[in-house]
Design a binder for these strands. Sequence first.
RNA 1: GCCCCCGUGGCGGAAUUGGUAGACGCGACGGAUUCAAAAUCCGUUGACCUAACGGUCGUGCCAGUUCGAUUCUGGCCGGGGGCACCA
Length: 855
Amino acid sequence: MTHYPHLSIEKKWQEAWEKSKCFVAKTPKPGQKKSYVLEMFPYPSGRLHMGHVRNYALGDVVARYKRAKGYAVLHPMGWDAFGLPAENAAIKHKTQPKSWTYKNISAMREQLKSLGFSLDWSREFATCDPEYYSQQQKIFLKFFENDLVYRKSSRVNWDPVENSVLANEQVVDGRGWRSGALVETRQLNQWFFRITKYSTDLLSGLSTLDNWPEKVKTMQTNWIGKSRGAKVCFKIVDSGQKQQNIEVFTTRPDTLFGASFIALSPEHPLSSELAKNNPEIDAFVRECAQLGTSEETIERAEKSGIDTGLTVVHPFDETKTLRVWIANFVLIGYGTGAIFGCPAGDQRDLDFAIKYDLPVLPVVLPEGECADHYQITDKAWTGTGSLFNSGFLNGLKVKEAIKTALSKLEALGIGEAVTQYRLRDWGASRQRYWGCPIPIVHCHACGAVPVPSADLPVLLPDEVSFETPGNPLDHHPDWKHTSCPKCNQKAIRETDTLDTFVDSSWYFARFCSPQAKDPVDSVAANAWLPVDQYIGGVEHAVMHLLYARFFTRALKDCGLLEIKADEPFDGLFTQGMVTHETYKDPDGNWVEPVNVLRSETGLTTKTGRSVTVGAIEKMSKSKLNTVDPAAIIQKYGADVARWFVLSDSPPDRDVQWTESGLEGAARFVSRVWVEVLRISKEPVFTDQKTTTLSKDLVKTTHKTINFISQDIETLGFNRAVARLYSLLNDIKKSTGLEPEQISARRFATKSLVLLLAPFAPHLAESCWETLGCKELVAMTRWPEFDEKWLEEKTLIIPVQVNGKRRSQLSVAFGLDKDELQSLALKDPDIIKSLTGLSLKKIIVVPDRIINIVAK
RNA sequence: GCCCCCGUGGCGGAAUUGGUAGACGCGACGGAUUCAAAAUCCGUUGACCUAACGGUCGUGCCAGUUCGAUUCUGGCCGGGGGCACCA
């Protein structure tokens, strides 16, 4: 077999592409269509992982295809370079976040380049470049001016030993991950983006996103969480409290007669008030605070509560009172931070009621149940039905009862219809060093004062100390000390930095004009935005994508982004993960795939210890089941790695990395190369007619061109790969020596090479050159197919009896129902199958199927 | 806990709008080539029954709609993603 020297070949073409500048984005010419292809930019963790290879290989197929179709293509790359890992690395390795980050970027840039992606490197930037974050500071100030960002007090996880705020992932079982200290919660003044201003718009905008996965739109819809309901006032009986009423939000005012208690969030102002004079309540509220701020933890914790001793009057029945509890499952951030508990109609309320022996009165009777015997035991009924045990609502269906209850509340002046959103304003303050400084100065006299534009950017200090616990910016010797821009008195810089989601909320716009003096140049933005195809992990389905959608709207409203489009990403694709088997040695330690040997007796480590195979999981450092792309590229080449991640698995599903699959990919690359060498040695004939001798291969080629184009447009790359395999097989089977056969073979092979280019670009260039073509494939147009080759003249139609295939007819395309029916009934196999049965019905779908129903 | 998604041979997967389930690849098996092996090439390969023709079952499980369900509906089981300070 002829060896395919991937290392030298791949380098050669990467240099040729760079020299020709064919991937540098050129502004679309008049009348030329544009395509902005973007993959979510990587966090520079230090090394590329297979997830990156897959992500960028997917995008590269689209970018190369669009370029070949004549589009002006923007396909940029950058670095999501701020964030927590750099600080953790700095602490662990005694380095500085800045040098660590830029070193990682260099390493990863080289790795990306070795994969031969068709990226426009001239637009590269990192979000930690002062040029980038200074533009972001301008945006922040513009938002400040337009009341899109503000400060308020909010709760954080606090590690009392590290003296710092903890991310939810840093809280493990209620303790700080490094210190092991019990986590507290603290109130801090923090900066918030007013994303809720756009709640309705972000929601309605989703319906215009036809090229987004339905699941992502559903997730965002649920995240925004629009719900219609009622605010209801419960009057506190003889309270002696300052507060006379408790206001609750409910989507089910129809179930008010089933109310058995009121529950307040532990953070509700009334809870805090009561805690002051009651040590037990105080202890309970503190205990709840130890759960941290994660909604998941709060909701998964066992329901618990404390009776405050207060009672309220039932709004519809003054003779009834309800106890007021404080409960750990009531969230302060949603509604009013207080609920009425209807155990029969809500599982959480029911669990709570059972635990504390509170009354359970069913009020919604499911259809088909008898009111006299219907009981709720351990399963709440949240479905529809008619109301009972509910005074004036009795007999009404749920929907009508909600309306009726609402009107009554409004008439009584103790409630009103409200629309509530689950979406909260975006808390963007981080008490950390490695992020974009917030350009604000705090002055005793003037308050929070924006840094004047002449004084921008507010640069991060290059060197900071992580010796002292807490925010390095806060205890930097001089950084925060400044003077007030208004009154010139001594003042303190804001030491919070911005959430890294801010950086990624507008980078796609910056790529249009990465050197512009303003955040986004409007001419460039209009030329390129929106992003036509955005590709990334589904883990970003809600937050990153919602924040970017919000930023697009906010930037437009502030005049910083002048584009026609309302949405930043026209097409979105969420790719699956790269998984791998996990391995363990007899001591239960994880073993890396490279250290696992396959022998006849099973799997062993290199030192001869037996290895057991565990679950197939997402490649991760913790499970040591990663495969290093660099090693794969070195051994097999970039094209093999790319081909593998694009083969077999649909891009939106997980792909399992296997050695054998990789070998298969390598074999394919060799087979193409060998085949092209064979074809290249054949004589070249021009103007050959196609007759029956060469018809099949020419037809297959035209069909393949059509299919692969469709597969790429619909991002079905695994299907395209399967078709490339097929076409290669057909070319290999073609061995005829007549000139027209040789000619057909050359046509098919040249088409194969062009179709292959988006998937294995280096291989394609080599093959193209070998076939005697002078121009780069990267600059060659996509092959055209001829419609006339796609038409089918005859086809095979299955004939079923009672839904089971019993025969088939080979017929001309387009035969009508009657003809098909009579043909089917004349078929000997069908006659045999029908003996002893009488015909009931015949279903004929022309060009598809015939089904005879008989008894 | 809540929201969302996924489930097809030994494996990854294919299958226009509900219309022949298993394309293509991997693995396995058999053969060719070889002193031998690797590589390569050719063939077979869902399960069960049958000497064969052929038949029965079969798309996580259980129901339903339909002439017909991998595809639509409801319930269940299993796996994954997100839950607001990881990115």
